[in-house]
Write a protein that binds this DNA or RNA. Sequence first.
DNA 1: CAAGGGATGTAAGTATATCTGACATCTTTA
DNA 2: TAAAGATGTCAGATATACTTACATCCCTTG
Lengths: 136, 136
Amino acid sequence: MSDDIRRNMALFPIGIVMKLTDLTARQIRYYEQNELIHPARTEGKQRLFSFNDVDRLLEIKSLIEKGLNIAGIKQVLLLNEPEPVITEITEKSEQKRKELSDKELHEMLKQQLFNPAASRLGEPSLIRGELSRFFH
Amino acid sequence: MSDDIRRNMALFPIGIVMKLTDLTARQIRYYEQNELIHPARTEGKQRLFSFNDVDRLLEIKSLIEKGLNIAGIKQVLLLNEPEPVITEITEKSEQKRKELSDKELHEMLKQQLFNPAASRLGEPSLIRGELSRFFH
DNA sequence: CAAGGGATGTAAGTATATCTGACATCTTTA
DNA sequence: TAAAGATGTCAGATATACTTACATCCCTTG
């Protein structure tokens, strides 16, 4: 869950993603246009990709190389999606989702991730190494 | 070791780092100027930060909040640095270091990290989830 | 084979993000 | 009070990214 949050933080501009995936900007934008990915945006409308996005792009690339077309890839990606569990609270959670703008979410994530010293002074520095949770 | 590589990949532009650390661009640049951090650069000279850089900035911030000045922080960071082990091969490894431009290194890292399908076709898709190695 | 559609390249023009350098401001300390 | 340290702010330049439109290439299908 918290891991999920980390993997979904919008972090990378398209230039970095190009290097990480060896895809062109054209390709990446085209895949977005076809709804294979849904990167976040900065205030100025620049795309911002998460680890999940990059991961997904790598799978897309691999499928492209296997000869799949967009429609096929879309299917595969859908199959790999964990089914969103339909619960009683569906309405409520949907409500909640709407309440949280991307920006607010990002703020939350940041708090949760980095536990900034600002919040509780006097606490020993737990901050250093906090990022190591990104890795195994 | 490989973990080290991942943590040192130049990934983030300054804008993201600002959000992650709640430091201003001015502060980040000032700390670089005072050699507390050494972010990489793009071809166009834009700063690119690694996880290690961000981690370090978070520690710097925490020390700033404790009232340390730059000189003090530099000392603390030096102390926390694992001593570079002086071995017989010092000359050789120094030589090696010089041979690797940042760009070449980055290429290596990318290969090692993402094991691109392009290299060995026919191999089952190990790619999806590869990035999950970034997390525990 | 010709026509059409899918996937990507490329170019133009604009907008956003970042850079450096200089000067301003505020605080602490000698 | 003067000097030095840390940060804010502004300006002008450069880099990066955006959208839109058109071009190209390769398949597929009639």
